[in-house]
Design a protein around this nucleic acid. Structure first.
Lengths: 187, 187
DNA sequence: TCAATCGTGTACCGATTGGTACAGGAAGTT
DNA sequence: AACTTCCTGTACCAATCGGTACACGATTGA
């Protein structure tokens, strides 16, 4: 049979997109096979644990991407306010202005939440923690910083829900603009 | 065979809970049968359209409940600021302080979004519209009112995502308290 | 009392699910 | 050239999916 020498890493992107579009339960193996162009044999070769292992791998890759592109800059940037601004830009691009679903958020509301509870919690905990630290360094009062960070991270997730339900991507950008304005350092 | 004379309306509550817990795809007919205590024969007697008709009925009932308990009070209350406060209390109770999922929001992120697009859009559009009207009557500047309403409704949805992912219901109440504070009439 | 209607459970349908088994070809090693 | 490892597609599995058919019992009205 033909051999294409696929790398496991190359599968993560189409896998993620399939899970985003159809959810965990809805992403059937035949859909996954179509998206990756691989048969079941190859899929089970790379992911012996089946669908669950595929989803775990995707979640790990997402967390890694956010760690490098969002969380670490928030924690370490020299100008924390600029880092917060960059976060909004990065997130807007990542979610395609509200047209793309957050897989972590979608899984959190779904049936599969319990199965991936640890990964889901870690993703949001890291985000809130990093953002709260940046807000404090930018001059926000420390005691309210975590609550404010939760509000912003939650607000982004809610904006995705709203934009998708209303089928109006501009609502996403508008809500994010409001969140950004309010995250500026207070006078 | 035994006849229990079930009413169609009595089925909506267990149906809604099943869809909330397992999503649309995940709510199998056997789960639904167990939750309602009815066999397939009875279910298809009340809902000839099958699962899709059950979900439509549940969404219609949810919209009706929110119309009476949330949307109309926002539109018609004599004290609009008190109506906004009441909305936060009603919503907190309805979502069991973040332990209960918003079915409309969850469906919006799921595979089933396209199928129920009209109902999902209407629910959120009604909510944003009613809230924006209340904010204006409470003294908020009219040009930013819809954006602010979107931010609040989205914020509630995001708080549900966050509380569920973090498995920390108090995060829901904390975010809602912040939203409430910011929805007060400006000086 | 008899017939019609309404609810109901069970059996069944084809299709699809996630997962396994395996044969076999391509590439690399010796 | 023989051998091994890796990757691949196909065939197959039991289980479950949403949905249909239908027969039976209870209720109701005449």
């Amino acid at each position: 049979m033909a051999r294409t020498v696929t790398e496991r890493g190359d599968l993560l992107a189409p896998l993620a997109e399939t899970f985003r579009e159809h959810g965990y339960e809805g992403a059937s193996l035949s859909l996954i096979a179509k998206a990756t162009g691989l048969g079941k044999g190859s899929l089970y070769h790379f992911f012996p644990g089946g669908k669950a292992e595929m989803a775990e791998a995707v979640l790990a890759e997402i967390e890694g991407w956010f760690e490098g592109a969002v969380f670490r800059p928030l924690r370490e940037a020299q100008d924390p306010d600029a880092a917060v601004a960059a976060m909004f830009e990065t997130v807007t691009a990542y979610f395609r202005s509200g047209r793309r679903v957050c897989l972590v958020g979608a899984l959190s509301l779904s049936d599969a939440r319990d199965r991936f509870a640890a990964a889901l919690r870690r993703y949001f905990a890291l985000w809130v923690e990093a953002l709260a630290a940046a807000l404090v360094r930018a001059g926000h009062p420390p005691d309210g910083a975590e609550a404010r960070a939760e509000e912003i991270v939650g607000g982004i997730q809610g904006a995705l829900v709203l934009a998708r339900a209303l089928d109006r991507p501009e609502a996403f950008e508008r809500v994010l603009a409001g969140l950004r304005a309010r995250s500026r350092a207070p006078a």
